[in-house]
Design a binder for these strands. Structure first.
Length: 455
RNA sequence: GUGGUUGUAGUUCAGUUGGUUAGAACGCUGGAUUGUGGUUCCAGAGGUCGCCGGUUCAAGUCCGGUCUACCACCCCA
């Protein structure tokens, strides 16, 4: 006997109901992207490892799925390498392709490769699965979808502002209450500068990013463990404790950064961004969060993160500005800014809050019961007319027992069943049954189409 | 990658200090009802107790390993 089939760890099948719900999210997102003039691209599931390696830090490299070379690859491996048993040295001999880890790096590669065909600034969106060899947990998978929007080739902060507007638009449509948290890497760099720990920018950002989750004491402890001097930690405290609304925080930062050029630049960018946002009449709450760092270390300017106010959950959307992402692929000086929507988490929020729409464009509206060959022939022209007028409809493919066909309609939640047997045919009519109320009507084909189109 | 919890019909779960033939509910199939689904009633099918090994006269139950899902780190969407 065949053993039970299964799928790889951290991957999922999607049932029809789930796909319909997921498409609702993707369709809403795409609609808004298009509304702002973004165009879709797609890139291959696999990239050359040389494109992917070293772009996500040391951790990231470990989480890349690598694809085994084809053919007799072992014959080319020198014996000494096999004896050494050093995976890091052996891997390049066995694998030269990997599954993409995110959509941003392949996008950067795409831009460099097609730079002469692209009109800048390039506004693109991309909705595709990505793969990470992470340990799965609830809401964390090894295969998941990212929905990215980026503008590349423009330094204007208007792009940041529009991305926030897109976020506002999408979550308003999805009926999720959100707060958009904003910060700027230059502020964080300024902080590192004035406390005299320029070198430790990454450690500092990672540590203060945790302020929401763990206590101030723990954060300070972690900073000390990472080798940040006690003096610097002391200097950091008043900054972490900054209070007030956005303009108050910005005012205080101006004083703090009097001697930090990069810090001042960050303050100016924030002022400009919030200036744009004020004119956009957003429904979403905005918050300047100085502890917002986000892990990805290619961000250089604005940092954006979106959380829902409706339930306790990590961010459902995030992004920022990255200067010079294409530099590593040989095209320096092109700046980009983008955000990525976490489809899986948005799904969980909508499910939890029961916000998926009941009506779906993907379910069958009308089922013709099949009574036999003559009856089939009688129904087919009407079925064709229904479909022509855009009504999802089907005929049961064989003249099975009535009960079986009714159960089929019931399970598929088909709202209307059409019965046409001998007696109906004799009168040139159809019996239309409303499956919810159980009511039945004897109607002509024209009346049938009219009634069904209305409901 | 580190540490922990878990696994029994399709699903959710019972299963005594280790002791004959592993149960229930829901679901599924058929019937009551040859032109009527959701409610009801009757009958039936469905399990290598995640997998591999060990201890024992005897293992769903104890031990080791492994896989899976989940939880906390790490990191992240």
């Amino acid at each position: 006997m065949a053993q039970k089939p299964s799928i790889p760890k951290g991957t999922r099948d999607f049932s029809p109901v789930e796909v319909v719900k997921r498409n609702y999210i993707f369709d809403t997102i795409k609609e808004v992207f298009r509304l702002y003039g973004f165009q879709p691209i797609e890139t291959p599931a696999m990239e050359n490892l040389s494109t992917l390696m070293g772009k996500y830090g040391e951790e990231g490299d470990k989480l890349l799925f690598k694809i085994l070379n084809s053919g007799d690859f072992m014959s080319k491996v020198p014996y000494e390498l096999l004896d050494e048993k050093d995976s890091n040295k052996l891997t390049p001999k066995l694998s030269e392709k990997g599954l993409r880890y995110d959509l941003t790096v392949p996008f950067a590669r795409f831009v460099v490769q097609h730079q002469n065909e692209i009109t800048f600034p390039f506004r693109r969106y991309q909705i595709q699965p990505v793969w990470r060899a992470d340990r799965p947990q609830k809401g964390r998978y090894r295969e998941f979808f990212q929905c990215d929007v980026d503008v590349i080739g423009s330094d204007s902060l208007l792009n940041e502002a529009e991305l926030v507007q897109i976020v506002d638009d999408i979550f308003t449509r999805l009926k999720i209450n959100t707060v958009v948290k904003l910060n700027n890497r230059k502020i964080l760099a300024g902080i590192a500068e004035i406390i005299g720990e320029n070198e430790r920018l990454t450690d500092i950002t990672v540590a203060i990013d945790k302020l929401e989750k763990i206590s101030l004491e723990k954060v300070n402890q972690e900073l000390a463990e990472k080798g940040v001097s006690a003096e610097a930690i002391e200097k950091l405290q008043p900054i972490l404790a900054l209070k007030g609304d956005t303009s108050e925080k910005i005012n205080q930062l101006e004083t703090i950064f009097a001697n930090s050029e990069i810090g001042m630049k960050g303050v100016n960018e924030l002022q400009m961004l919030f200036g744009y946002l004020e004119r956009m009449e957003l429904k979403t709450e905005l918050e300047l969060d100085l502890t917002l760092a986000r892990g990805l270390n290619y961000y250089t300017g604005a940092i954006i993160e979106v959380k829902t106010k409706d339930m306790d959950m990590g961010s459902i959307c995030g992004g920022g500005r990255y200067d010079d992402l294409t530099g590593i692929f040989g095209l320096p000086g092109v700046s980009g800014v983008g955000v990525s929507f976490g489809a899986e988490r948005i799904y969980d929020v909508l499910e939890h809050l029961n916000l998926f729409p009941q009506e779906s464009a993907e379910i069958t509206k009308v089922l013709f019961v099949n009574f036999g060959e003559k009856e089939e022939a009688y129904c087919l022209p009407v079925l064709a007319k229904l479909r022509k007028s855009g009504i999802n409809s089907e005929i049961f493919p064989e003249s099975a027992k009535m009960k079986k066909q009714m159960i089929y309609a019931n399970k598929k939640e088909i709202p209307i069943v059409v019965l046409a047997g001998e007696s109906e045919m004799a009168e040139q009519k159809f019996t239309l049954k409303n499956m919810e109320s159980g009511e039945q009507f004897l109607v002509t084909s024209e009346e049938l189409i009219k009634i069904v189109s209305r409901s």
